[in-house]
């Protein structure tokens, strides 16, 4: 077992564990924190998989901005501890868990099967420069500019939706 593998399994366990906390925790704020832990663990996994740029981006954007936004909203709305689920909703839950399991099986089988067929390709360099070069190439340039407009739209939309009537 190489160091990478060990580290991978450690961070994977952390991710799964905090994901379960996210799902199982009653208080939304604690769920948010757990999700931050998950994100950071995933960031580490990204790094272990040879993608430093994305790893940093994950921490900065996801954990740093999006989750902060979540926490802002949680604080704004002063969410309380969540009530226990309504009676009779166990049908929905059971169905959901069942279907979730099936989904895992399906997705997992697809993913695992594909990777087993051929081994990983060598010579993989995902440094910032290389990614940036691909990002600004004609293949993805339009999409890149479009996302900026998307963010503008989101900005305007969020303001319009959430403001109070004057």
């Amino acid at each position: 077992m190489t160091l990478d593998a060990i580290l991978f399994y450690v961070f994977a366990a952390a991710a799964v564990g905090s994901a379960l906390v996210v799902v199982g925790q009653r208080h939304p704020t604690y769920s948010a924190f757990a999700l931050i832990v998950t994100l950071c663990s995933l960031s580490a996994v990204f790094g272990l998989l040879g993608s430093p740029f994305i790893a940093v981006l994950q921490v900065v954007v996801y954990a740093g901005a999006i989750m902060v936004l979540f926490l802002f909203v949680l604080m704004l709305l002063s969410v309380k501890r969540e009530e226990p689920p309504a009676r009779g909703a166990w049908g929905v839950k059971a169905t959901a868990i069942g279907l979730g399991a099936v989904l895992v099986a399906q997705v997992g089988s697809v993913l695992a099967a594909s990777a087993r067929v051929t081994p990983a390709a060598p010579g993989f360099n995902a440094s910032t420069g290389h990614v940036a070069r691909l990002l600004f190439s004609p293949a993805y340039l339009y999409v890149f500019e479009a996302t900026s407009i998307l963010i503008l739209a989101a900005l305007v939309g969020a303001v319009a939706l959430a403001k109070r009537e004057m």
Binding site: D4, A5, F8, Y9, A12, A15, V16, A19, L20, V22, V23, T38, V45, L48, L49, A96, L99, G100, A101, L103, V104, V107, G108, L111, A112, A115, R116, A120
Partner: peptide
């Protein structure tokens, strides 16, 4: 590491669902 990563992905996805 690819296969475990993919399985992790599937698992996280299921938990999310």
């Amino acid at each position: 590491l690819t296969t475990p990563a993919l399985l992790l992905s599937a698992g996280l996805f299921a938990i999310g669902v």
